[in-house]
């Protein structure tokens, strides 16, 4: 801060100046006072641990032994670990199956729901309810649904229709899509509401103009609605993608007796991280896995920023 000038003749002017300085300095002070606790928090609980995670990924720490710097050993081990590649593929399967399926369904529902007036609030509530459930609770409910005969409702339904029973969670092929069902189901409520908000935000004058021009409903959907929904779409694609890449609760709870599904067929990266860190205590190796997850998510977020900046 500036020191007050000592010359008596300028005292009055300087006084006003320092008053003014104090006023803005005061506000700077207030600002930093408001930010003091949060800045410490973000430093200690977000940035420091991030740095620590990177650091640990270069060590062979296993919680019970002191850490030793091993350079890129953990990353080398990761690249050579067939389980990692299996898990990597699974994680992307969750993403490339889950995101489009849930968004197409949500959009179709929101698009029609937006035009419905009769019992609109009630219908919306039906679709939104799953979003408010606890993933752990619903994972067990769905696990029950997918049980074989004689307990599983779905297989009993299939049997009563004369269709062959399905192994679902007990199949290396079906288990992953089976786990996606509740994940998609629970996320749709949120997506539908966001789509509805996006649809509402499109001025009706656009539609009126299009109708006057004689465009068909289909053409309006493709040429007006969807382009104008781009920000909403980008947001939901990124939001859903990140959610599927981080899937954990459903996988963990739907397959507790064989974690990660038969022959690791449902194991996503986050389950591998959890098991490596908290079951095997191989903390260094687990940290390397988290760094990989971080890089994937970073790439997706940067992609979002690029898409958002592009002119519509």
């Amino acid at each position: 801060m500036h020191e007050a000038p000592a010359t008596p003749g300028t005292e009055r002017r300087a006084g006003r100046l320092s008053d003014r300085l104090t006023l803005s300095a005061k506000r700077v002070l207030w600002a930093w006072l408001f930010l003091a606790v949060p800045v410490v928090f973000y430093g200690a609980i977000r940035f420091w641990p991030t740095a620590e995670a990177f650091w640990i990924s270069f060590t062979d720490w296993n919680l019970l032994r002191p850490a030793q710097f091993v350079g890129l050993d953990n990353y080398r081990r990761l690249l050579a670990d067939p389980l990692f590649w299996k898990v990597f593929a699974n994680t992307f399967l969750y993403l490339i199956l889950g995101t489009p399926v849930s968004l197409v369904l949500s959009f179709a529902i929101a698009y029609h729901l937006d035009r419905v007036r009769f019992l609109h609030g009630f219908l919306r509530a039906l679709y939104f309810l799953p979003f408010l459930t606890t993933a752990v609770a619903m994972a067990w409910v769905w696990r029950y649904f997918f049980q074989p005969v004689p307990i599983g409702p779905i297989n009993n339904l299939l049997a009563s229709l004369g269709l062959p029973a399905q192994p679902f969670l007990r199949s290396t092929l079906q288990a992953l899509p089976t786990i996606l069902v509740p994940a998609v189901w629970a996320g749709m409520g949120f997506q539908i509401i966001i789509f509805l908000a996006g649809l509402r935000a499109i001025p009706t004058s656009y539609y009126e103009a299009a109708r006057i021009d004689g465009l068909s409903e289909r053409a309006i959907l493709w040429r007006i609605t969807l382009p104008l929904l781009k920000p909403t779409l980008v947001f939901l694609v990124v939001f859903a993608s990140i959610g599927f890449l981080r899937i954990f609760d459903y996988v963990y709870n739907m397959n507790t007796n064989d974690p990660g599904g038969p022959l690791d067929s449902t194991k996503p990266l986050v389950i591998m991280i959890y098991q490596t860190a908290f079951k095997s205590y191989d903390v260094g190796y687990a940290s390397a896995q988290t760094v990989v997850l971080f890089l994937i998510l970073l790439a997706i977020s940067l992609l979002q920023l690029r898409l958002m900046r592009q002119p519509t």
Binding site: P148, V149, P150, N155, A159, G162, P164, A165, D258
Partner: peptide, 17 residues
């Protein structure tokens, strides 16, 4: 077993875990 051949009561319960 039921009509579709699904087991409704096992002869021997397998459980590797």
């Amino acid at each position: 077993r039921d009509g579709a051949g699904n087991i409704t009561s096992e002869g021997f319960a397998l459980d590797m875990a």
